[in-house]
Computed example of a mutant assay.
Amino acid sequence: MDKDDHDAAYKCMFSYPRAVEDLLRDFVGDEWVEKVDFSSLERINGSFIDDKRRRRITDVIWKVRLADQDLYICLILEFQSKTDPTMALRVGCYVLNLYLDLYKNPKQYKLTDSSKLPPVLPIVMYNGAPRWSAPLEVDEMIDVGPGRLPDFRPHMRYMLLDQGTYQEQDLMGLENVVADIFRLENAENPEVWRSVLRKLLRYLAGPEHDGLRNAIKAWIINILIPAKFPQFKWPSAQLEEAGDLQGVEAMLKMNLDLWGQQYVQEGLEKGLEQGQANTVHRQLLRKFGPLPDWVEKQLSDATSEQWEEWGDQVLSASSIGEMFKQPEDQSAFPTFPQ
């Protein structure tokens, strides 16, 4: 999957007010969310970020009225294979640049004569496989130092949404675009996709959601399906006919049997391989006793073909050395009677 394509697809989905509203309502969780006037959501151009830094960050900025003041929401989307230890610094620079731009261009941002700048909520959305482990606060990255030096460390925190930490049972009851996007990306069973799509079609049925439905459809077809089922080639004619999420749901229904068979077959193959491995491992232990660490290492790295080969050899082998390659730093293999 191309990272730039994934970035663009997510950025497109979060360019619609409904997605941002659902994000704040069910994933932020603070009491002040109830005071937000969601009808005032306005997309802001992040022109304060230069092109070099923009290539390293996918941003979506919104302004919304919170009681009697503006609130700026910075969505920072991260699609990479590992945690970024510099994220707190990156977010800090990003937010400070936004504040500088607000201060320099009050008319552009329709600021009042108030002497204080508006609050900003930076949210980092991460969908990598390892759980996020980087600091959430800038001052956590800075040595404390003696005396009063700790008082002068900068304090800036971001909110983290680590997609992989959300469980299906926590999300399935929500009528929420963000929750259903997470469910689609986390699901391994195609039947879950159909369930989620039917749900999305129900609560995004109005014409005001046409753009968001099309953005989700494009993400599913161009990003999600190739990532989840790389072995399955969706016919181009079907892609052209999928005009909306309704068409995607229909194609899923049409191909569900094939995908389901592949899903079940993959599970059966994994189960058979694991069963074969367990059997051969037990036979080795019974015949040769406790196995050296270097043998266990070869077993843990084995392919299904190797397990099958060892299964044939274990009955006739008189020593570990007949079955496994001896590392150079190991002593001679003991010979066991047949």
Rank of each mutant, 00 (worst) to 15 (best):
D4S: 13
A8Y: 04
Y10L: 15
K11M: 08
C12R: 14
M13R: 02
M13T: 04
M13C: 14
F14R: 00
Y16A: 06
P17Y: 05
D22G: 00
R25D: 05
G29D: 14
V33C: 08
D51K: 13
K52Y: 10
R53L: 11
I61C: 10
K63V: 10
R65L: 07
Q69S: 15
Y72L: 02
E78F: 11
P85W: 09
C93T: 14
Y94G: 01
Y94D: 05
Y99D: 10
L100R: 14
N105K: 07
L111Y: 08
S114I: 07
K116Y: 13
I123R: 02
V124I: 13
G128K: 03
A134G: 10
V138L: 15
E140T: 09
D143K: 09
R148M: 12
L149C: 07
L149D: 12
L149W: 05
D151F: 13
R157P: 06
L160F: 07
L161E: 01
T165W: 06
Q167P: 01
E168G: 04
Q169E: 00
L171H: 04
E175H: 12
E175T: 15
V177A: 01
A179L: 01
D180W: 02
D180H: 08
D180S: 09
N189D: 03
P190E: 01
P190N: 00
R194N: 04
S195H: 00
V196T: 03
R202P: 05
I220Y: 01
I220H: 00
I220Q: 01
I223L: 09
L224H: 00
I225W: 00
K228G: 02
Q231D: 14
Q238V: 14
A250L: 12
K253G: 11
K253W: 09
G267A: 13
E269W: 06
E269F: 08
V280N: 03
R282C: 08
G289A: 10
P290W: 06
S300T: 14
D301G: 12
D301N: 15
A302W: 02
T303K: 12
E309H: 09
E309W: 02
W310M: 03
A317K: 10
S318Y: 07
S331T: 11
F336M: 12
F336T: 15
Q338G: 11
